[in-house]
Design a binder for these strands. Sequence first.
RNA 1: GGUGGGGUGGCCGAGUGGCUAAUGGCAGCAGACUGUAAAUCUGCCGGGUUAACGCCCUACGAAGGUUCGAAUCCUUCCCCCACCA
Length: 286
Amino acid sequence: MWIAEQRPTTIISADSRQIYRGFDIGTAKPTVVEQRGVPHRGVDIVDAAARYSAAAWADAAGTWIDDARGQGREALVVGGTGLYLRALFDGLFEEPALDPVRRAELATTLAAMQTAELRRWVESIDPPRAPLGRAQLLRSIEIALLTGHRLSDLHRLCARQPRWQARYLVVDPGPALAGRSVARIDSMFQLGWQNEVIRLTRDIPADAPAWNAAGYGVVRNLAAGEITRASAIEQILIETRQYAKRQRTWFRNQLPSDRVTRVDPLDVNWKSTVERWMFESHESPA
RNA sequence: GGUGGGGUGGCCGAGUGGCUAAUGGCAGCAGACUGUAAAUCUGCCGGGUUAACGCCCUACGAAGGUUCGAAUCCUUCCCCCACCA
């Protein structure tokens, strides 16, 4: 927000949970007031039951950046979904058209299979991808069966050219994060997180992807009376910490280190670090 | 006071003489990641030393004992839970 005060800025949220309408409190969406002060894009863009993708987001984000630039504004990409940032700044591959019906059928079949089975399968059709996670295995099989090509080949042969080069500002309070999380969770409850969840439970299917945002499953259990408030807070804290850890790992190892500036928001000198970063950068995620 | 059940590594919880530094799970640490990514997975995980194999130390409530060998068997003690008084 401080950056947006320095020059005209449009904030582009690169956050795979803030995209969902209705999941407001637990995803820490920018408030109405904040959005009035600074234009935000990328928040509330899809229905909570919808399946979305990093590629769809990156396409949309491209137009938001163009819009912002057209208005003479700086586009500041903010958010913690590493894959979205990669899709935008590194470019995914050019995906061939996939038949949605066959795709859905296949998904149903594969859903019944054990991860170990899927892994053996991928071992034979696309070995480099076999050590990856279940989601990646499903994707590998889907692409192989629907296109007749190995996903890892497509990655190499159909790479897309990125339109921008980002400079990254990684904002991390380090060990102080724990204390901040406690306060944050507390305020989420005060804002009515539990009621939000009760409302969503009525309208949104239980298997909608939006539900796997950190803490939402726990609050759902709390609302159902299955756990105590204290243990809910404890579990949310754990999920939050684990998510933050995965983000750190991603940003530490997946970003090009020569384009990364790290800043601790609790450091007294944070402003000068951010100023220096702003001076040498144009479009950049935090 | 009596009877029965139980005390295991940060937590939960298996294990009833050697294959046990001790299955599993959780938490933690490190890592992977190109279209569901706040997702999905992988490795490590008592301490010391080693590049590694290994070696040494400490450890299954406490103290003794039996045994070539004990988390596992015996004795005493401490604590927890249930029931009876």
